[in-house]
Structure formats: structure tokens, C-alpha cells
Amino acid sequence: MNTEITPAPLNVTVVVGSNRHGRFGPVVADWLLGRVRDRGDIAVQVVDVAEIDLPTTFAPSPEAAAARASVAPKLAEADAFVVLTPEYNHSYPAGLKNLIDWHFTEWQAKPVALVSYGGLAGGLRAVEHLRQVFAELHAVTVRDTVSFHNAGASFDDEGRLRDPSGPDAAAKTMLDQLVWWGSALREAKDKRPYAS
């Protein structure tokens, strides 16, 4: 008789990191969410920086408190994150940096998977910058990423990948790693609080 208990699905928050007009991020996010929702080991919610009006200064204000209150619970409840970023000027967007900087404990001792898109570099320079930022916040980034080089040409007019085999395989590997890290860290924090 098998008495093994199936663990609860990992709570994953997908962060859509671009807020520019005409952004391509929602196309990539829809594809990614399709991969995430196909899995029984992940429960997903979305934070979109385009829908959050965090100020760029840290001066206390009712507007800042309201904006933070709208997103902080989604970040705090997450066991893990997938951060979706374009590459702007060899790095990631200011709106994403602002979201990250407005929060601290919400990221601690949690894994972060990275999905990027862009031109020839596919957003990989943005990914490398984000690895440094998340390390400072006591988060761990998973090794494998998903990257879309010349992203606009990778998808058709309906938002479907022209050749899904490579990205789908990369997403599976990345999400498997995220679930492993997320489950391990969730279990560790249940036994002993993280000390920063």
C-alpha cells in the first residue's frame, strides 16, 4: 500500500516585466502560462508591472501604500517565481526593477526562473543582470532559462510559436528545476525559518 502524500502544488507567481506601450510581453506570457497551466504541480497567478502604479521614489504616500498592497500579497504567497523580461539597452526594464526594489522579504529564500526575449541576444543580458539582483535579495535563480531570439519572428500573428519544440522543451526543463527548488525551499522553511 502506497501511503506517500502528494505535496500541494507549488504557488508560482509569474511576473510580466515590461510596461512599455506596444510591448511584446503578453504574447510570450500567454505562451508561458499555457506551459505552466499544463502542469499539476504548479498553481499560478500573474503580476503584471503594467497594471501596478508603484512610484519611483520611496517617499511614503497613500498612493504608494495602495499600489504596494495590491501586489505584495501575490509576491508573499508565492513559493517561487517566473520573471519574464525583455532586454532594453543591454538590461531589464525600469518598471521591473522598481517592482523588485519595492519588496524585499517577499523574494527571500525562494527560487526565480527567468524567461527573456529580445533581438539577437534574446534578452540574455537582462537575465544575467537579474541574477545579480536576486542574489542580493536572498533568492536563488534556477540554472536553465527560456530565451526568445528575434522574438517577433518566433510567433505568428495569432501568438502561436512557429516552431514550439525547442521552447517547449526548454520550458519543461526550467519549470522542473523551479518545482524542485521551490519544493525543497518550502520544506526547509517549514522546518526552520530562513535567516538573512
Rank of each mutant, 00 (worst) to 15 (best):
G119E: 04
P60C: 00
T6A: 10
V179M: 11
P9K: 07
A135M: 01
Y117I: 04
R37H: 09
D144L: 02
A50E: 12
K191Y: 08
P60V: 03
E187W: 05
F104A: 08
L114V: 08
G182V: 09
S116L: 02
V142L: 03
A135I: 02
A69P: 07
D38M: 12
S18A: 15
A135E: 00
F148N: 00
R162C: 09
E128K: 13
G40L: 12
G25E: 12
E63F: 09
E187L: 09
G118V: 07
W102G: 04
K191Q: 11
G122D: 02
D79V: 01
A59E: 12
L130Y: 09
A188L: 09
R35A: 08
E128D: 12
W31A: 11
G34N: 10
N11F: 13
W107M: 07
N89P: 00
G25N: 12
N150L: 08
I42P: 04
F134G: 02
E63A: 15
V140E: 03
L137F: 06
I42W: 04
A29W: 14
I100D: 01
D79L: 03
R39V: 08
K189D: 13
D156K: 14
G119K: 01
E158H: 14
A80R: 13
P7S: 01
V115G: 01
R39S: 03
N2C: 05
A113G: 09
A135G: 00
F104T: 10
V49P: 05
T141Y: 09
L175H: 15
D53P: 00
G152Y: 15
L120P: 03
F148G: 01
D176K: 13
G159T: 10
G95I: 07
S18Y: 12
H103V: 02
D163R: 14
W102V: 00
K74Q: 10
H90R: 12
Y88T: 02
S61P: 05
L84W: 05
V44N: 10
H90S: 08
V71C: 00
L75R: 05
L10W: 14
K189L: 03
R186K: 14
S183L: 08
M1K: 13
V127A: 09
Y92V: 00
A64M: 04
A76F: 02
S196W: 15
A80D: 10
V83D: 11
R125Y: 13
V112A: 07
V44T: 15
D79P: 00
P167C: 02
P62Q: 04
A195V: 15
D38L: 13
P62V: 07
S91K: 04
D38Q: 15
G159D: 12
G118W: 06
R131M: 11
A66I: 03
L54M: 02
L96M: 05
V46S: 14
G123S: 08
V112G: 07
V16H: 00
D156S: 13
